[in-house]
Structures are given as structure tokens and as C-alpha cells.
Computed example of a mutant assay.
Amino acid sequence: MRAPLGDFDTALPAPDCLDDLVAPVADAVRTWRGAVPAEQIVYVDTEPEWADTAVFVEHYGRDLLERSANCVVVAGRRGGGTTLAACVVPSTTRVDVNGIVRRQLGARKASFASMDTATGETGMEYGGITPVGLPADWAVLVDSAVVDLPYVLVGSGRRRGKLLVPGKAFAQLPGAVVLEGLGVS
């Protein structure tokens, strides 16, 4: 199979490589429901040492920068409670944590979750967190620019490998809320 974008040696439908995915991501692919079939989610094998965006696009294709998204875990606090959520924004932007995220979560204060919290709560590796397979009770805030792309490169749950996901599939994820301007320059 040829990847829908980028220059990858190995590209397979995600359901065909569940053993290469961490448990929560494999479970999400296995039980996938929605208008976009799971077979349209593509797993591409990549080198973990090239996982950071600048190095990654140098090796796998400059066109990927405009077609990649970052998934970050945020913590919203109000009173004594903390709400965890994920934000998916184009990789050329940053998450508007103190504006849109804080308001969307109804939080008094919002910040990026610690690495230990992000990895412990998701079951994914830091640097590879993906919106596919997050806890079902989390909000998944998705920038509308991500949904508008034909395919988007995101983490696979591990530093090795990435997922190529049709943009419209992000709006179908459990807990998904599509927002304008979530990612800011």
C-alpha cells in the first residue's frame, strides 16, 4: 500500500497492524465505528529518533508539515477538581490553552498536563500521543483546520510509527468537539 501522503517505506491499513499499536489505540481501531472505515486509517512505520516534527519532515517529506497535527493533553482546574482533555491542532500552530481550551472546559485555569499524567492516563508514549484511543470520558478538542484536511499525520501512541487519518474522522472520535481557532500562530 502507498501512503496517502509522505514518503514512507511501510504503510498498512491500521487494522492490519494492531500489534504495532499500544493497547488503547489498537482497541480503538478494532472497535472503530463511523462514516470513515477503519481501513482508511493508515499506519506508517517511522524511526523513533526522527519523531520530532522538524527532523521528521526532513526525512519523510516536507509536505507533511502542513498536513500534520499535534495531540496534547491539557488539564483544566476549577475548585478542587481537574478535568483532562486532548487538543488536536495543526503542527504549525500552538494550542490556545488560556483562551478557547479554558473556556471550553469551564475551567478557572488550564495548562498542559505533566508528562507523567499524559502518559499514565492515556497508556501512550510521550511524543506519540494520538487522539485515537483516548479515555472515553475525555473531551477531544479538534481545530477545524484539521478536520478540513483530506489526510492528517498524527502520533500512533508510540514514538515509533504514525497514523495517517482522514481529517473528517477526527470529528467522529468519542468526545470530539470541533472548534475554530483552537490552534493559534
Results as ranks from 00 to 15, higher is better:
Asp20Cys: 10
Pro150Leu: 12
Val132Tyr: 11
Gly34Glu: 10
Phe56Leu: 00
Val36Ser: 03
Ala35His: 12
Glu66Ile: 01
Gln104Trp: 15
Met1Tyr: 15
Val154Lys: 06
Leu182Ile: 00
Val154Ile: 10
Asp96Leu: 05
Ser68Ile: 06
Ala54Lys: 11
Leu164Cys: 12
Asp116Phe: 09
Met1Ser: 15
Ala145Asp: 14
Ser144Val: 11
Arg160Asn: 09
Val154Asn: 08
Val89Tyr: 01
Thr119Ala: 15
Gln172Pro: 08
Gly127Gln: 07
Ile100Asp: 01
Lys109Arg: 07
Ala14Trp: 02
Ala75Leu: 09
Ala113Asn: 15
Val165Cys: 11
Val142Tyr: 07
Val88Glu: 02
Tyr43Thr: 05
Ala171Cys: 12
Ala54Glu: 11
Val22Thr: 04
Leu149Thr: 14
Gly175Asp: 10
Thr46Asn: 04
Lys109Trp: 02
Ser111Asp: 09
Asp27Val: 03
Ser91Gly: 12
Met124Phe: 04
Pro24Leu: 01
Leu134Ser: 07
Thr122Arg: 01
Val95Ile: 14
Asp9His: 03
Glu125Asn: 08
Asn98Pro: 09
Gly106Lys: 15
Ala145Trp: 11
Val184Asn: 15
Arg159Glu: 05
Val25Gln: 00
Gly79Trp: 05
Gly157Ile: 05
Gly79Lys: 06
Phe56Val: 00
Val152Ile: 02
Ser68Gln: 03
Thr130Pro: 08
Val177Leu: 11
Gly99Ile: 06
Leu12Met: 14
Thr53Gly: 05
Gly106Cys: 14
Thr82Lys: 13
Ala85Val: 02
Phe8Ile: 10
Glu121Gln: 10
Val74Arg: 13
Tyr43Lys: 04
Ala176Thr: 13
Asp7Ser: 14
Ala14Asn: 04
Asp143Gly: 01
Leu164Phe: 13
Thr122Pro: 01
Leu21Val: 00
Leu64Thr: 03
Asp9Ala: 06
Met115Lys: 11
Arg94Asn: 05
Pro166Ile: 07
Asp20Gln: 12
Glu47Phe: 06
Asp137Thr: 14
Ala169Asn: 04
Ala75Cys: 09
Thr31Met: 03
Gly61His: 01
Pro24Asp: 03
Ala23Lys: 05
Val25Ser: 00
Gly80Pro: 07
Gly167Thr: 10
Ala28Tyr: 09
Val97Lys: 15
Arg77Leu: 05
Asp148Gly: 08
Ala139Ser: 14
Ala118Cys: 08
Pro135Ile: 12
Leu149Trp: 12
Leu12Lys: 15
Val95Pro: 10
Gln172Tyr: 11
Val88Phe: 02
Val29Asn: 03
